[in-house]
Design a protein around this nucleic acid. Sequence first.
DNA 1: GGGAATATGACCCATGCG
DNA 2: CGCATGGGTCATATTCCC
Length: 578
Amino acid sequence: MDDKNNLQNGKKIINEAVDIYCIPKNDSTTKSEGSDIDWNTDDDLEIENAIFSSCSTKQLVGDPGASTSAGNTSSSTSRLITHFMGIGFPRDFITRALKKDGEINQLPLTSLNEIIKLFTLVSSPFGYLKACTAEGNTTSSCVENNTFSFLIEMGYEAEEAYTAIKRCGKDTPIMDVIEFIDAARMRHDAHVAPSEVKVEELQSNRHNHELNKSTRFKKRKMDEMARLSNKMIGFGVPGVPLPPMVINRNLPHYIIGPPYFYYENVALTPKGVWSTISRFLYDIEPEFLDSQYFCAAQRKRGYIHNLPTNNRFRLLPIPPTTIQEAFPLSRPWWPAWDTRTKLNCLVTCVGSAPLTERIKIAVEKSAENEEPPSHIKKYVMNLCKKWNLVWVGKNRVAPLDPSEMELIMGFPENHTRGGGIGNTKRYKLLGNSFQVDTVAYHLSVLKNLFPGGVNVLSLFTGIGGAEVALHRLGIPLKNVISVEMSKTCRIVVQSWWEETNQKGKLIHVPDVREVTEHILKKWISEFGGFDIVIGGSPCNNLAGGNRVSRDGLEGQHSSLFYEYYRILQSVRHLMRAS
DNA sequence: GGGAATATGACCCATGCG
DNA sequence: CGCATGGGTCATATTCCC
């Protein structure tokens, strides 16, 4: 049944993608609304490029620079259909993807590729397999499609996957197809034309095979390391010298400038999640950053945004950055053998009282003024690290209380206190939040860009980390649309809004799904557009701590990332149109 | 030394019970 | 609400082997 849902979801996204990608409504070169996009006359060249180029040319319609000119539309359409049928998509599916309001839309091949990619990503290979069968395709065609879907899901380009399957043969095991693509890529890097790659060479030469596998492993490893360097200093943090490697942030030209957007999630996701997120968010390199450079606790997060990165500045006052500074009262009780200076990530669950008692008893066993034996030290340290415990008295450890967590996370003390909110809930809210100083560092560049204040579309607002950051930066909040499902969070944000005497307007929306194009249009015309779209979509299906439903980006909650993407696309589209 | 095997550590968590 | 319990996927660190 999940497959069916995936499929429907995929179709929904395609329809939305068609809506979003299609036509700039008041483009002077187009005649009727939403149906006529002009064609590049050189169809042959374009299709050739699409099939044989191994790099993504994300030139979307409506993005500046997507140049178009008049051409033969009907033959282009049939070529497109032929092309995608050649890949293995059912004709019916392609025509449905192309159709809107009963008319055939003429989309550049690259855009249609995007749509297909979206579909393939959202619907599982098995869902697609079933759909094929239902639509009367042959089994062999389904197998081919399945391989294709897998390759796409793994992050290969549609074009190269298609070429590889075609050249290897549709019955070739998927690993061999991958070897083929990687070999082709390596040769391409070495300026060898893809057409010179011979399948037989790979299949018959075991040594070569192993070599490629090893090189591929290395290459991936290096890619990962470059993206996710163990220090996690993002594009630079105050006080830490940058590595000699130059940060080369080449944003696609069409994504530079307003509306700005800022997306956040946990850094250590299941494999492939960040590359998928990045692929949706305009191929922008995530900025992986650990909040330990801004506060006393680690917090490894990835951020994708189109904000400038020069002339950032920190919030003042700079909060304590070590446990000892953050908890001066703990100093007399802190044993020398507990060498921690930073807390681990503050999460939604905390250690229990009996646990702290067990630790007390374990430590007390050793004589006065004497270190416990090493196995006790190890036992205690493991628990302290696991539960983020601090020393609060003689042989006594305790979890942070919610107010201490608030301070470390950069919120005003008692931000989440009262109003009917219990401690368990406070821990949950705080554990799910932004670290304010970290986010403020990134958002600080907005201060010069918007001296008069900002209009914010805040998705998955939580307890308002981004709003607090902007406020503390001294950036006036003009209009804030806060989309947050939890009533408790809305209460927290509303209280903060009133207590800090905000002059702007705060509108609460409970569900992202209510944020339709229609209502976005209304807000945009009312406010004159959004200056920034901020959001950290649910991480519970991505986070390592989840032992039950770490389902990845397609998980029940984490899949709301696609809503973030949808809304951001909508805002960008509407703001270009207005 | 370098690669492979193995150990260790970290993780914006969910559920059931009393 | 407090508490106990429950794997698994990653990355890095360490050890082992050639």
